[in-house]
Design a protein around this nucleic acid. Sequence first.
DNA 1: AACACGGCCAACCGCCTGAAT
DNA 2: CATTCAGGCGGTTGGCCGTGT
Length: 357
Amino acid sequence: MGRSPCCEKNGLKKGPWTAEEDQKLVEYIQKNGYGNWRTLPKNAGLQRCGKSCRLRWTNYLRPDIKRGRFSFEEEETIIQLHSVLGNKWSAIAARLPGRTDNEIKNYWNTHIRKKLLRMGIDPVTHSPRLDLLDISSILSSSIYSPSHTNMFGLQPVVNPELLRLAASLLSSQRNQNPNFVHQNVQENHFRNSHQVLENHIVQLQNQDHQTLIQETPSCAPLSNPTCVPYSSDNSQLMEPNVDQLPSSFSHFNPQNCQLNDWQNNLDNFIANENYVYQQHIIDPQSNLTSSDFDFNSHLSNLSTPSSSPAHLNSNSNSTNINGSSTEDEREISYCSNLFKHEYQEIMDSNAFISCNF
DNA sequence: AACACGGCCAACCGCCTGAAT
DNA sequence: CATTCAGGCGGTTGGCCGTGT
C-alpha cells in the first residue's frame, strides 16, 4: 500500500489565509493547544489541511514571533550560523528567538546571499569566490570610462608587488588600530581578503621572476619585465611598518585615518595601481592603453586550457573546477575580482573620501 | 496613466525522518 | 522487519507591491 497524502485535497482551501481563518485557528489553539495537525482543521472548523494550519501557525500566528526588519546583530548571527550549519534553516531559527526558519530562509535568499556575492564571498562556502570571473559582468562593466573595455578583473593580470603592499597595509591597519577589529560583515570580508593576499604572497615567495612572467596572458607581450617592480625581500610584509612606506602612502597611516576612509583609500590605490600595471603588461614598450587591448583575444586565450602557464597545469595538487581552473589561477582570479568589485562599488556609490594629512 | 519589471515573502510542494503499528 | 503516516524540513512558486519607463 502506497503512502497516502497528508490530507484530502478535495474541498480544501489553498492560498492566502483570511482574517476569519486566522481567528479560528488562533482561538482553537489557545483553547486546545496545538498538535495532531491532521485532525486540527476539522475540529477548528477550517477547510484547510493540517499542514497548511501548522505552517500558518508556526510562521505567522505564533504569539512569540518577532516582526519587523532583521537587526544588524541578527544578520550577523545568521551569517555566522550559516557558515557552520549551512542551509539548516530550522537549526538557525532555533538560535534566533522570534524568527522562523521560513523568514530566515527568505531573508537569506533576498538580502544576505546577494550581499555576500557583491562582496566577492561565496554564500555557500563563506570563502572568497573561487569561480571564474563572470564574463558578462566584465564585458558590461565600465570602471574607468565606457570607451575602456574593462579588463580590470581579468586574471592573472594582478601586480604581484601590489598584492604584497596591500597585504602589508592590511596588516598594519589591523595591528595599529584596535577599532579595526570589530564584529561586522565588512570585517569578515577584509579578513578573507587579507588571507587571500597572504596566501598569494606565500606563493609568490616560491616563484621566481620567470614564473611571474609566465603568469601573464600569452597575448600580452611582456618584453620588458622590469616595468614590474619585484622584490624578493618580504620582511616588510611580515613586520609591517607604515613609517617606512613611501611618502605617497602616508594617507594609509591607520593612526590618522578612519576605517572607512582607509578602506576607500586602499581600494582606490589598488584600482589605480593595477590599472597602470595592466597598461604595462599590455605593452610596456609602446604607449598602448587598455582601450587598445584586444579584449576578445585575451579572453579566448584565458579560456583555453593550453594557454595556462605550464607550472599551473602541472600542479598535481590543484583541483580543477569547470575543467580548466587551478587553485593558483582561481586565487589570482579572486584577488583581481575583489579589487575590481570594491573599486566599482566605490565608483557606484561615489563614496570615496580623500584623507589629507 | 499604463505598462513592465524586479524584489519580497507567504504559502505550497515534495521529500525525509522517526515513531507507531 | 515492513509498512504507515504525522510532523518537519528545504526548495520553489506565485501574487502583491513599489519603482522605473
